[in-house]
Structure formats: structure tokens, C-alpha cells
Design a protein around this nucleic acid. Structure first.
Length: 577
RNA sequence: GCGCCUGUAGCUCAGUGGAUAGAGUACUGGCCUCCGAAGCCAGGGGCCGCUGGUUCGAUUCCAGCCAGGCGCGCCA
């Protein structure tokens, strides 16, 4: 089979353009698949584009182009339509040959040629201070699907999770754990309202007691509260005072508690994500950026470039000269680096690892953070065009028609694990990715739970199961389908299915380019829909052997693309349901 | 106040500088003696938020308004 039809038609149009309008040979040639079958298999608006510069009517130009179009055995019909569109209808062979391509290339069908581009996608990166909730789930599903789609499109993709193991939030978790542990020994310190309330913290306290007895309990409540301001005065100062006391009273044991809590929560998080079909190639530690001195090196580099100044004892990065609305502190008055400083170091590290494209997936609430990171990258003299942020809008959970509160610290949230258990991994992954990332997602928990059978994922899986069932009843050798007489596929629905299959690679490329894995989900819905429609209209297991083989070949091709597409979204393709 | 996202059928959402703006759901009516009815077929339902601008052509691009969400820390 020669070049794909789209490339062929573009070549033909280019030749026609060369003779009709040599001065305009650089006009981009756009071929699209018309929505309506009556408009042919491909349509070009070339004549409409040329109308203005050439000062001729679009329809006249279309007729001229058509007259100069070289003949091709693949093209059955060319016509001028509407305002001046040139519509192409392919011969049946050119349409059905895709079936053979799918069956011979199998899971490689639709895969883009290797681009050699190294892409890093960093996503989820939630603080390991508690279970992942449904908001994190969206970032996880989106990131994992995008990574798979970009990989399939031909890029080399690295998936990474940035572990915030160095900040105050981890200290709050360590303190929370310790206080819960102390309660086992009747050392009762009022639990701060802004500490981590979840029952998992109580559990961790219990585990430490079981394993180590009173090793960390050689204190009194008075010592823990010594010199700490009251909650009423300032609850954040109150918390910081307790943390300082904990560090002082526990000495080296503080690090033990801190690391225990971190390891527990990170392990829980990793296990949850793996169960969700969201793997990572690397879990990058924020703390390691300090250990290797990269944070200091990054700030020093900015300083040497003259982008840092000192004010009120703190070091400020002049991000306002790089488009940010104001300057930002990188090192506080107390000498501690800010989260922003380690983030600058992290991005420096990403560049130093030689990625061509660095994609961060953030929650939409972090959008204000983009200019300062981009500014820091620019200030370090690094190419900012390699850096992109994909914002994922909030997933708002509804329960009983009411917006449900979601806060890790308050402990009032629905965990990703609960959601997965309720609606299943497949429906969960699919539901999350069924919307554009910049669209707010209303996650109706009651609907997802009670009517999960109405989730479109089952519609697609059902098409797959049906095909498996028919092929099983045929009980033939699937290799024989490669020799099918595809000319027997001449029905309207069959040719439409072939066209849909042929569009798979285009959908992959588009989804990868637009960071829009939802396009794959909608494509699969369309493909499944066209299959169901055909299935109801025609029988596959017919007496006419050649016709049966041709139809089974088409069905097998549909099955292959369903499997490939669902795999990209992390959804299974069961043979029966 | 400034910044980002959103506004399309009753509801949840796709989509496009172009031809009659689509799907699911809900509602109405049909289709299993025949490969899986978690399916199919048919029907009604729309100032594509409003007002201007660019264009041969705008629901799409631009500006301004209106409405909703989110953000604007020496937090992470």
C-alpha cells in the first residue's frame, strides 16, 4: 500500500496548485475528514483560501484546481461543493486496506514514528501527608494518560513524582503522629485544629507504640506545651511552637518519627497509584536537592546574574523583571530556603538531565505560580520554551447534591482509594479523562456509585466483549483474516468504520500535541458507537464464507484499536462482562 | 482590584474560521424464534452568555461587559 490517502491527496492538490497558481504554491494544504458522509472522505478548503489573494471566486478556483488535478487510482470522485470546497471520495480499496494494516501491525497500529524527543512529565506530586483524595485522582489519571499518549505518539517519556519531603507540612505530620502516639500513654496535649486530623495519623501512632513501646514517650504534656502560644492567639504559631518543642525533646528521635510518617504515607500513596494503573519512573526527593547542594547552587547562580537582592533580611528573586507581578522570596530572614527556592533547583535539575520538553501538571489553584517558575528558568539562562505547565481544573465532589468539603488537614475528604473501590478503576480512570483538563469536573459521587452501569466506559468495553464473543463462536484461525477479501466490505457502515480506524493515528497525534487525552476517550466512544450500529444492522457469521471472513477481519481490527486505545487510558478490555 | 479557567440542548459535556452546531442522559415511540438488548433505530428539544470589531464567512479569533470557579504569603 502506498502513502496514506491524506498525504496522497495533499500531493495531488499541490501539483494542481502549481499549475493553477504558481505564485501561491506555499499555501498550506489542509485536508479534513468532513462530518457528513455526503461530503466525501476528505475535503479541502484550498480554493477558499486562495480566493482573496487571487481575487477570484472560490468556486471558479475550485473548478480550475479540479481540472488540473492529476488522476489517481485511489481517488474515485472529486467534486466542488458548497462555497468552494473540493471534496474527495476514495475508491473502496483505499478505505478498506486499513483493516489489513491494523491486523498486521496489531498493537503497533497507530503508533507514531520515534521522534527522539525526550519528554518529562511531572504530576500528582502531592504532599505525602495523607491519603490521596479525588482531586489528586484527576491529576493522576490525566498525567498517566497523557504520558501514555505521548509515548504512543513517538516521544520518549519519563514520568516523575516530586516528593515534598523537606517542608513544614511534613513537620506538621510528624508532630501530629507524635501527639497521637503520646495519647496512648495518657500524655494528653490538646490536638491542634490545624494539625492532621485523619484517623490514619492515629493509626500510625498506634503502630509506633506497638513496635517501640514508650521509647518516644519520656515527656510530659507540660514539656510539650512549654513556651507555646495559645491556639487562640495564633494557631499557626501554636503549631510551630509545638514542632520546635518536639524537635528539642525528641532530639535524634524526631527524625525517626518524621521518616516513619513519611515512609508510611509515601508507601501508601505509591501503592494507591500503582493500583490505579499510574506508574512513575522516578520519585524525586525535594530533600535531595538540599543534600546535594543544588538549592544553594541555583540561588547562587541567580545571585551571580544579578537577579537577587536583599530586603528585610530576606533574599528576593527579581521575578517581576521576568513577567511576574512581584518579586519573590527565595531565602527567608531566618535563613531557611522557601519552597520556591527548591522548586527552582528542581527545574534546574530537570534541564540538566537533558529533557527536550518539561511538562508540569498542576492543579489550577497553582496557576499564579507559573510566571515565577518560568521567570527563574529564564533568569538561569535556560530555554523557557521547553517548559510547559498543563493546568488541571478542580474536581469538585458532589454528595447528595451538595458540594463536599475536601481538605486533607481537616480529614474530611473522599480518598481516591474509596472512590476506586466504589466505582472501579476502569470507570474512575475513564470518567476523569472524559473532560478537557481545563474544564471544571463535577464528580457526582452518588451518580458514579448508583449508576455506574451508565458510565460510557462500559459502552466501549461492551463493544470489545461482543467482538470477542463473535470471534470465539467463529472458532477459526485469526491469521486467516489477513487474507480477507476486503472488497466485500462495501456497506455504508463498514466503510465508515474503516475511515474511523484510519483516523486513529491522527487522533493520537492531535491528543499528544494538545495535551488532550480526552480526545482518545471520545474517539473510542465514536468507534464503539459505529461498531454497535453496524453490529445491529448486519450479521457477521453468515454462510457466505468470503463475506464472513471480511466482516470478521473488520471486527478484529476494531477490537485491536479498542484495546490499544483503552490501554492508553489505563482502562481494561475484558473479553466478557 | 489584578491574573488564569469556564459559559453550547432540561442536565453532563464534545466540537469547528466554512457546508444543516453534535454525543450521552432525560423524555416519547419502535427493534431480541437470528453472532451478547450494558445494544440498535426514530422523534422533539439550541439568540453556541451579551455587545461591538476583524473577515467573503465568527459559535470559533480580538476587545469590552455580565455570570460562575480558582488564585494573588518570608505556606507548600
Amino acid at each position: 500500500m502506498s502513502a496514506d490517502p491524506k498525504t496522497l491527496l495533499a500531493d495531488l492538490l499541490r501539483q494542481a496548485l502549481n499549475s493553477v497558481a504558481p505564485d501561491h504554491v506555499d499555501t498550506p494544504i489542509v485536508l479534513e475528514r468532513p462530518k457528513q458522509a455526503s461530503h466525501g472522505d476528505f475535503s479541502s478548503n484550498l480554493a477558499l483560501q486562495l480566493a482573496k489573494p487571487m481575487r477570484r471566486s472560490p468556486r471558479d478556483l475550485a473548478a480550475l484546481l479540479m481540472a488540473e488535478l492529476p488522476a489517481s487510482p485511489q481517488v474515485a470522485k472529486v467534486e466542488v461543493a458548497g462555497a468552494g470546497f473540493i471534496n474527495f471520495t476514495l475508491v473502496a480499496d483505499a478505505k478498506t486496506s486499513v483493516v489489513n494494516a491494523v491486523l498486521s501491525q496489531r498493537e503497533r497500529f497507530g503508533r507514531g514514528a520515534a521522534t527522539g524527543t525526550k519528554v518529562m512529565i511531572e504530576f500528582v506530586s502531592a504532599n505525602p501527608t495523607g491519603p490521596l483524595h479525588v482531586g489528586h485522582g484527576r491529576g493522576a489519571a490525566y498525567g498517566a494518560s497523557l504520558a501514555s499518549v505521548m509515548d504512543f505518539a513517538g516521544h520518549t517519556v519519563a514520568r516523575e513524582y516530586y516528593v515534598n519531603d523537606a517542608g513544614r507540612q511534613m513537620d506538621i505530620l510528624a508532630l501530629s503522629t507524635w501527639l497521637r502516639y503520646l495519647a496512648n500513654f495518657d500524655i494528653t496535649v490538646p490536638f491542634p485544629p490545624n494539625a492532621y486530623q485523619g484517623s490514619y495519623v492515629v493509626d500510625m501512632g498506634g503502630e509506633i507504640r506497638n513496635a517501640h513501646g514508650d521509647r518516644f514517650a519520656k515527656v510530659t504534656a507540660e514539656q510539650v506545651l512549654a513556651g507555646v502560644c495559645s491556639v487562640e492567639d495564633d494557631k499557626e504559631d501554636h503549631l510551630d511552637g509545638l514542632i520546635a518543642n518536639a524537635k528539642r525533646l525528641l532530639g535524634e528521635d524526631y527524625a525517626w518519627i518524621h521518616d516513619f510518617a513519611l515512609t508510611e504515607q509515601l508507601g501508601d500513596c505509591r501503592e494507591d497509584l500503582e493500583g490505579f494503573g499510574v506508574p512513575f519512573d522516578k520519585w524525586f526527593s525535594e530533600k535531595s536537592l538540599f543534600d546535594t547542594g543544588l538549592v544553594e547552587r541555583a540561588v547562587t547562580a541567580l545571585e551571580q546574574q544579578g537577579h537577587i537582592y536583599v530586603q528585610d533580611g530576606a533574599k528576593w528573586f527579581r521575578s517581576s523583571t521576568f513577567g511576574d507581578e512581584k518579586d519573590r522570596v527565595v531565602q527567608r530572614e531566618n535563613g531557611l530556603f522557601t519552597y520556591f527556592a527548591s522548586d527552582i533547583a528542581y527545574h534546574l535539575n530537570k534541564y540538566e538531565r537533558g529533557f527536550d520538553r518539561i511538562i508540569d501538571i498542576w492543579g489550577a489553584d497553582h496557576h499564579g505560580y507559573i510566571p515565577r517558575v518560568r521567570g527563574a528558568i529564564a533568569a538561569l539562562g535556560l530555554p523557557t520554551e521547553k517548559f510547559e505547565v498543563a493546568l488541571v481544573q478542580f474536581a469538585v465532589l458532589y454528595r447528595n447534591g451538595q458540594k463536599a468539603a475536601m481538605s486533607t488537614r481537616s480529614g474530611e475528604f473522599v480518598t481516591l482509594r474509596e472512590l476506586r473501590k466504589d466505582v472501579g478503576n476502569d470507570a474512575c480512570r475513564f470518567f476523569y479523562v472524559l473532560r478537557k483538563s481545563d474544564q471544571h469536573l463535577d464528580f457526582d459521587l452518588d451518580l458514579a456509585k448508583s449508576q455506574s452501569n451508565e458510565n460510557p466506559v462500559y459502552y466501549i468495553q461492551y463493544a470489545h466483549a461482543r467482538i470477542c464473543s463473535v470471534l470465539a463462536q467463529w472458532n477459526g484461525v485469526e491469521r486467516d483474516l489477513l487474507d480477507a477479501e476486503l472488497a466485500r466490505l462495501d456497506g455504508e457502515r463498514e466503510l465508515a468504520l474503516c475511515a474511523r480506524l484510519a483516523a486513529f493515528a491522527e487522533v493520537i497525534q492531535s491528543a499528544a500535541a494538545d495535551y488532550a487525552p480526552h480526545q482518545v476517550a471520545f474517539y473510542l466512544k465514536d468507534l464503539a458507537g459505529e461498531f454497535h450500529s453496524w453490529y445491529n444492522a448486519e450479521r457477521m457469521l453468515v454462510d457466505d464464507e468470503a463475506l464472513m471472513i471480511a466482516r470478521l477481519a473488520l471486527a478484529a481490527a476494531v477490537r485491536q484499536v479498542l484495546v490499544s486505545g483503552l490501554a492508553l487510558l489505563g482502562v481494561s478490555a475484558p473479553t466478557s462482562m
